[in-house]
Amino acid sequence: MYFESFADFLEMGRHGFYVWTAYGVSLALIVTNLVAMVHRRRQVRAEIRRASRREEAVENHPRNEQSS
C-alpha cells in the first residue's frame, strides 16, 4: 500500500478531486451500460415467452382462432 492512511488515499496529494471524479464518472458510465444490457436481456426473453405462450394458447383452443 502506497498511502499511509485512508485520508491520504482519498486526498491523492491534492489531486483527489480529479482522480475520484475520473473514476466516478467512468464507473457510472459502465454501470449504465450493464443496466441497459440486463434490461434488454430480460425484455427480449419476456417478450418471446409471452409470444410463445399466446401461440400455444391459440393452438390448444381452436375455437379462439376465429374470434381473434
Binding site: 500500500m1 502506497y2 491523492m12 489531486h15 483527489g16 482522480v19 475520473a22
Partner: peptide
C-alpha cells in the same frame, strides 16, 4: 488492476497522484 493502480503503485515523480487516472484512461 484498478485497486493496484489506485492504492499500491507508486506516484509519478512529476505528476504525483493525478497520473493514477492513466489506469482507466489508457485501457478505455
Amino acid at each position: 488492476g484498478l485497486v493496484w493502480g489506485l492504492a499500491f503503485a507508486p506516484p509519478d515523480y512529476q505528476q504525483g497522484n493525478s497520473y493514477r487516472i492513466i489506469f482507466i484512461h489508457v485501457p478505455a
